Amino acid sequence: MKRDSRLSNVLHALLHMAEQEDRTGSPMTSDQLAACLSTHPVVVRRTMAGLREQGLVTSEKGHGGGWRLARSLDSVTLGQVHDALGGTGLLPDAPPVEADGCLVEAAVNDALTNTYAAARALLLERLHDITLADLAKDFARRLAEHPNRDLIHAYARQRSST
């Protein structure tokens, strides 16, 4: 089963956007976000457009433009970001059917399908309890404790200026 990393990638991007805005007051371009996420700027623009439609980010065109958070970090939950991405990808709805007609597989798949649904409900509930501010605080703590924090700051500045 292929892992859907859209939620973690978007959360990553949103925290970079918040950090850059705090540091420089400027938005992040699609090119800068693409460099942070090791993807193509078109993918960033397509993904961010969905977040913009949900009121989570704004965009500015032209020189000095880019993407900004539309709301404070403490007013955006991971669940809201997940919902803005289409609400999929956390857990499969059901396991794959590999031996159609096998009664053992049918029993196993029914049990797993019900278990996936219960786990998805718990996970979604928890995602709506965690804010971007919670993630930012955890990042700040990790950075403060990191022995090479000055190098990390320099690297972040370099990446955000490209």
Rank of each mutant, 00 (worst) to 15 (best):
Ser75Asn: 11
Gln20Arg: 13
Arg45Tyr: 00
Pro41Gln: 07
Arg141Met: 07
Ala156Arg: 11
Leu69Arg: 02
Arg71Asn: 09
Met1Asn: 10
Pro95Ile: 04
Gly64Asp: 06
Cys36Val: 10
Ala34Val: 03
Leu37Cys: 10
Ala106Thr: 13
Leu11Lys: 02
Ala140Asn: 11
His16Ala: 15
Val42Glu: 10
Gln20Cys: 13
Ser160Gly: 09
Arg157Gly: 12
Asp100Pro: 11
Thr39Tyr: 02
Leu73Ser: 08
Asp138Lys: 10
Leu14Trp: 01
Ser161Val: 02
Ala111Tyr: 03
Thr58Asp: 10
Gly65Glu: 06
Arg3Ala: 11
Asn114Cys: 13
Asp93Ser: 13
Leu51His: 00
Ser38Asn: 12
Ala144Ser: 09
Ala119Asp: 13
Leu135Ser: 07
Ala121Phe: 02
Gly62His: 06
Ala35Trp: 02
Met17Gln: 07
Met28Gly: 04
Pro92Trp: 02
Ala133Ser: 13
Leu85Trp: 01
Val44Arg: 04
Thr131Val: 05
Glu145Asp: 10
Gln158Lys: 13
Ala18Met: 00
Lys61Thr: 12
His153Cys: 08
Leu73Lys: 05
Ser26Asn: 12
Thr115Pro: 03
Leu135Trp: 00
Arg120Asp: 12
Gly101Leu: 08
Arg23Lys: 07
Arg68Asp: 02
Leu123Thr: 15
Asn148Ile: 08
Leu112Arg: 12
Asp31Glu: 15
Leu37Thr: 05
Ser8Cys: 10
Arg23Gly: 06
Ser26Lys: 13
Leu151Ile: 06
Asn148Cys: 14
Thr39Glu: 07
Val10Gly: 02
Arg149Cys: 08
Ser59Tyr: 07
Ala140Glu: 10
Val104Tyr: 04
Leu132Val: 04
Ser160Val: 03
Ser38Tyr: 06
Arg142Ala: 15
Met48Asp: 01
Asp4Tyr: 02
Asp31Asn: 13
Leu78Pro: 00
Thr131Phe: 01
Asp134Cys: 12
Gly89His: 03
Asp134Gln: 07
Met1Phe: 05
Ser26Asp: 08
Leu33Lys: 04
